[in-house]
Design a protein around this nucleic acid. Structure first.
Lengths: 221, 221
DNA sequence: AAGTAAAGAAATATCGATATTTTTAAGGAG
DNA sequence: CTCCTTAAAAATATCGATATTTCTTTACTT
């Protein structure tokens, strides 16, 4: 999961490669919040020219993971309690709408996708495989993706990743699974398959709030 | 308003300058949706090197105004009816929350800002000055800005600009003001100053829906 | 001693040239 | 005639070097 070492991958552009690696490093916390991102430093770390590095950093500002200061370079986005709380609040607002819209357009293909995503996530959690993070993300994104609103999905994904960053910062190591998270996921899935929007939304939001409170409690910022 | 000719401004970076100019060109419609943005072309148009152009284009992807296709360059973001409708829907969702939060934190300083913004907007509309666009934006952003949620404000601003782009594309010339828009603004202001959140929100959303329907009707996409 | 100005160092931003990839066009086989 | 391969052109992406700006340190004045 460490973004530093990845296949040279000759069929992706250096910029994109660079983007993915820096992104992973910021999300995992390898690059700490507020850390100055010097071009020359990254250039030698990633063994690549300055242009791809700069362009990748510019792209990362889209994701709110990098802050750009004109003439003064880049830094990893800063963090704060209020920022964390805003992310949580926005997720609750947007995912409620997204989940309701998805449920309104419910069909068996979507339901089956959900069941599959949930199954894979459970399995990954049991195996303690490194695939849990991806599976977890896939499950949550699938929940809200059954709607023709790509921008809404984009915002949700962005907020999801920002939240993951805080989780990684709060506890660099996944003792996350030890909570009742698995049960909560199961309940969300069940309510969604039943088609009860109010219950599903309530459970999803409670799930986020629970995680949020848990993270807040062991956050030192 | 044409973004092509602007002061050389030696105290801003070439990249930032480039960013602002390209941004204006896309918002006004000078650069049409889907149009291929060739580096060499822009390089000679803006009389600047390729690096700032590329970096500016990367930054514009943040604003959803430029689409980046790895190894295949950039293009002005495409438009569609469904995209327009999604922008409208998202604005209604987010601005409702933002306006309610602003009202919940209401104070006289904010109220006075609103009165001022509204006054300036009215004046600009009467004078047919080119400042109307900016004043209009300022008024709407002020309505939702009385809250400590910078990301929410950011999303709203982003969606506002995307909507403006559609307005400019639908009618390249502001016959916009001829509708009952001024009255609607007045009513929104009054309800907000009264502090009645439900009414203010309803009027604001109706305002957006009205504009949306009007634009939809004379859109050819 | 504190504040300021100048010099030096470090880092960013930009340029021009080149390598790489994609797109277009042309040729040839089945 | 169509499809596949290949050559040429165009455009993107990347590099290495340089110019510009910001940051740091030092020296000087009051």
């Amino acid at each position: 999961m460490s973004g530093v070492h990845s296949p040279p991958s000759k069929d992706r552009s250096a910029t994109h490669d660079c983007y993915l690696r820096l992104r992973a490093m910021i999300l995992t916390g390898d690059l700490t919040p507020g850390h100055k991102l010097k071009i020359e430093e990254l250039r030698s770390l990633l063994e690549i020219g300055a242009s791809p590095v700069r362009e990748a950093l510019s792209l990362l500002t889209s994701d709110l993971l990098v802050e750009r200061m004109d003439q003064r370079g880049f830094r990893a986005a800063s963090v704060s309690k209020s920022n964390f709380e805003e992310i949580l609040a926005l997720r609750c607002i947007l995912e409620e709408k997204a989940l309701r819209a998805s449920l309104a357009a419910s069909n068996s293909a979507w339901e089956e996708t959900l069941v599959l995503c949930h199954h894979r996530m459970k399995k990954a959690a049991q195996e303690d495989s490194s695939g849990f993070e991806d599976a977890h993300r896939a499950f949550h994104m699938a929940l809200i993706a059954n709607t023709n609103m790509p921008m809404l999905a984009h915002y949700c994904a962005q907020l999801y990743d920002l939240n993951i960053r805080y989780r990684n910062l709060a506890a660099r190591g996944p003792n996350y699974r030890t909570r009742s998270v698995q049960n909560e996921h199961q309940d969300i899935l069940d309510a969604t398959l039943t088609g009860d929007a109010d219950i599903a939304v309530r459970l999803l939001i409670e799930h986020y709030r629970n995680t949020g409170n848990y993270l807040s409690s062991q956050m030192d910022i």
